[in-house]
Amino acid sequence: MGIIIAVISGKGGVGKTTTTANIGLGIALNGKKCVVVDFDIGQRNLDMILGLENRVVYDMVQVMDGEVKLKQALIKSKMSDNLQFLAASQTKDKSVLDSQKILNLVTELSKEFDFVILDAPAGIETGYEHTIEFADRAIIVVNPEVSSIRDADRAIGILDSKSQKVKDGGEVMKYLIINRIDAKMVQSGEMLASEDILAILSIPLIGKIPEDKGIIDASNQGKPIILDNSSLAGKAYSRISARLCGQEVPLENVEVLKSGLMSKIKGIFK
């Protein structure tokens, strides 16, 4: 049985969908079979980030309702043979989700894939609750900023009380990703440092991602930034994906400014 991971944040716009796309692809590039599912019913976006928007024919709601077979709705990524994608419904609203149907869907997916990654909608309402309901693990994405951290704490609270694993007496494993870190601002004391965020949320860190303008370019093209080996954010996502696959990769301190000779020379030519 594969591992079901929900990617959550509470607040919107912190990089949840970008994270889902990149770690999904990163896991696939590590040789594991991976499926990413967009649970943001009515606000489908993961298809754009993965560059698959033109290939969506059927969505996950049609699969859950038995209108089409899972195989018909799964879309294979061109970027890795190990990665497949299941789109959210764009026309229906969140009320179509139903616990039993979701359980059936994720169970079927976890039989075929090593990793099932669910991209949760923003907020902490029913769409979110349904996404975390049957998750084994959760990746919490935050930005080093007060509203994101506070909303993430509320989302974690709901995860710890409403997931099926917790109701059965277990625990959902949680990992924190701190996204959009500006090293300069952290150094000058204008941005929360990762140790402060960890002290407040008290969940284990799985990676830190620096602010990277290349993310916009990557989403413009529908090519996740992890494919760009020269990008700082891409490298950070590669390290996180390797950790999720069980490899020991040391944490890189992206909060320290790299002012070595090489980067200065590179800076001149930019």
């Binding site: 900023e145 007060v146 951290i149 506070r150 952290v186 004391g189 204008e190 941005m191 929360l192 440092a193 402060d196 002290a199 407040i200």
Partner: peptide
């Protein structure tokens, strides 16, 4: 201001 943010949070 990062310290202020931490305390308020």
């Amino acid at each position: 201001s990062a310290k202020t943010a931490k305390d308020r949070l």
